[in-house]
Every structure is written in structure tokens, then in C-alpha cells.
């Protein structure tokens, strides 16, 4: 959990804004440090967290969280964290001998055209199911990352359907939060239209309440500034539309990240 980012976003683990849908995106850069931030943030906030880890193994997330001062294994044992290890589960579908028929979540791999209903049902059961004795806070869904689903053969429309259902259940019905990561590979302002990740990102931007867009520095590589993150808050219910854009530069450290206004890096001043 990065305290600097919390103050930028006006958030703290003690008071969670209900119904927030946060879209984290990156272009020619890596935004996974934000996923680790949100994972530790919501675990500290005592939320019931469902994590769809599609790009890395559990050990990876666990090791990073250890550095941020949290034990994912303990959270899992206490029933606070439901972790879907996409790499392992997809293997058991793709190689039928190893199949142990534990979870139906990755069943969409057999027929990607059919949509992500099985994955949604997994999410729904994990956020509503009361598998533990302790009483956890509002449910949270974290996805790292959605564009992997596109690579697995699912259409952008089906992913948007999935995110819509998750939003209806978690954000609207249960007043929880969602964080989704989307990676864009192409150049900005490409008017191709058929680029799946662009369409996915735009569709999610229409649904979300907050976007965090991570980019590399436009002026090129720098040792002391790893990139810039654009924070854009879209309207919430109650107040009328005012899109606020803020741009910060960041540097990722060993155990956290620092955010500063443009041009105010310690290496420059």
C-alpha cells in the first residue's frame, strides 16, 4: 500500500468509497505495481477480496505482498482472500489428464466464444459465499489483467459483458469495489477500431468511476522517473459531471512508490 497514492486518491483503508470501479491501464509501461497496491490496500481495509490472477503465479503475488508487509497465505487461510490462479487452472483445462475438476472458473477456455459466464459465476460465488467465520467488509474484485482474456480467444464484447455483470453484482448490489487492469500495446490515437484492447479500455472507461492510466515518459527513458500516471475521476452518483484530470510522475522503489507533480523529481530539483 502506497500512502502517497492514497492521499492523491483521497482514500484510506478506514473508509472505502462504496461502488467504485477503478480501471488501471498502461501503455508501453508496467502498471502492475498499482495492482499490488490495491491488493494490499483492500486486504488492510478488511474487505473480502476476490483476486483473479491471470498473469502471474500465487507465489509471485505472495512475494510482493510480503515486501509490502502482508501475508497472502494467511489471508487465504482466514477466508479473506479468494485467489484464482489462472496459470495453474488453465493448465488443468488444456491438459485433461491433470484435470482435477476443482473449479469451473476457467471453463471458458474450452469454448472462448461462449462467453465468460463460468468466470462470473466463480466471482459471484466467491464474493457472496460465507466460507469463513469472520465477518469481512464489502467485497472487492481485482483482476490482473483483463487483456489476457483477449489473448485467450475471448472477444472484447464478452469481456465487457463480464465486467458489466461483475459491476452490477459487486458495485451496485453489494456496494463493493472493483479494480481492473488493462494493457494496451499499440500507439495512442490509433483509429483502428478492431484493436481489442483499445475497445475494451474504452468500454470500461464508460463504466468506471476512476481511471489510472500509466505511461512511460513522453521524453524517453529516465533513471529517476519511471513514468507518469494520469488520474481521471469520472462522475459519481449525486454530483454532476466534472472530469478531473491530474498527472503525476512516479518512481517505483523496492518497497513502495513515490508520486510527485511533473518536474519535481528529486533528481531534477
Amino acid at each position: 500500500m502506497f500512502t502517497e497514492l492514497n492521499s492523491i486518491l483521497n482514500a484510506s483503508p478506514d473508509s472505502i468509497t462504496p461502488g467504485e470501479l477503478i480501471v488501471v491501464s498502461d501503455r508501453q509501461s508496467d502498471a502492475s505495481f498499482l495492482v499490488h497496491h490495491f491488493l494490499s490496500f483492500y486486504l488492510r481495509a478488511r474487505c473480502k477480496v476476490c483476486f483473479l490472477g491471470l498473469v502471474q503465479s500465487f507465489c509471485h503475488y505472495s512475494a510482493v505482498s510480503q515486501r509490502l508487509g502482508l501475508s497472502l497465505t494467511q489471508a487465504k487461510e482466514r477466508g479473506q482472500l479468494v485467489f484464482l490462479e489462472g496459470l495453474k487452472d488453465s493448465l488443468s483445462i488444456l491438459i485433461p489428464q491433470e484435470r482435477n475438476a476443482e473449479s469451473q472458473a476457467m471453463d471458458f477456455l474450452q469454448d472462448p466464444a461462449a462467453g465468460l459466464r463460468s468466470l462470473y459465476e466463480f466471482v459471484q460465488s466467491s464474493v457472496t459465499g460465507s466460507g469463513s467465520s469472520e465477518d469481512w467488509g464489502p467485497p472487492v474484485l481485482l483482476v490482473d489483467d483483463l487483456s489476457v482474456l483477449l489473448s485467450l480467444g475471448v472477444s472484447a464484447g464478452a469481456v465487457l459483458d463480464f465486467s458489466h455483470y461483475c459491476r452490477a453484482t459487486i458495485c451496485s448490489q453489494l456496494q463493493g469495489n472493483m479494480v481492473m487492469l488493462v494493457r494496451c500495446s499499440g500507439e495512442e490515437e490509433e483509429e483502428d477500431g478492431d484493436e481489442g484492447s483499445e475497445r475494451l479500455l474504452k468500454g470500461l472507461t464508460h463504466q468506471c468511476t476512476l481511471t489510472l492510466h500509466v505511461q512511460g515518459l513522453p521524453t524517453g527513458f529516465c533513471k529517476d522517473i519511471h513514468g507518469q500516471v494520469e488520474v481521471c475521476r469520472r462522475r459519481r452518483r449525486g454530483d454532476l459531471q466534472h472530469n478531473q484530470n491530474k498527472l503525476f510522475q512516479y518512481k517505483v522503489h523496492d518497497k513502495g512508490a513515490s508520486f510527485f507533480a511533473r518536474g519535481t523529481s528529486s533528481a531534477v530539483l
Partner: peptide, 8 residues
């Protein structure tokens, strides 16, 4: 149709 637009 917000909560269940596809009948899931």
C-alpha cells in the same frame, strides 16, 4: 436490464 442483461 442492468442487473441481468443476458439472463445469466
Amino acid at each position: 436490464a442492468y442487473a441481468d442483461p443476458l439472463g445469466w
